[in-house]
Amino acid sequence: MREPAWRRTGKTPDYRFSLANERTFLAWVRTALALLAGAIAIDQLAPEIAPPLIRIILCMVLAVIGAVLAIVSYRRWAHQEQAMRNDEELPHSWLMLGMTVIVSLAAIVFAILILVQP
């Protein structure tokens, strides 16, 4: 498969920056994997945390966020490298704020579920 067209534009960034960009991508991928593992772990190891339907919906929401995060992390990696190639400012991303809000919300929801657990 050919490299995408934007990889032939601008200049090749310093390898330290492209490798740092790659590691950032991998860190987001691990976050996505942690969401997936968390979803399955809650479903299997804490079946009493909520009524079955609510539990499965919450776990599915976590898994879907994991899938979206995997796609967003690829797009982020590509946009960062495009910016580096064209000597532009690195693009602003709502990803960090978004994931902070999502993880906080998940923590609050599951904390409440644990507290109200019979």
Binding site: M1, E3, P4, R7, T12, P13, Y15, S18, L19, E22, F25, V29, A32, L33, L36, A39, I40, M60, A63, V64, G66, A67, A70, I71, S73, Y74, W77, A78, E81
Partner: peptide, 24 residues
């Protein structure tokens, strides 16, 4: 030559999306 090929990044992302679908 040291920068990651786009194919590897895409394949890895696709693998995670597939794993997420499997999880669902």
């Amino acid at each position: 030559h040291i920068a990651v090929p786009a194919l590897i990044v895409r394949t890895a992302s696709a693998a995670i999306v597939t794993l997420a679908a499997t999880t669902v």
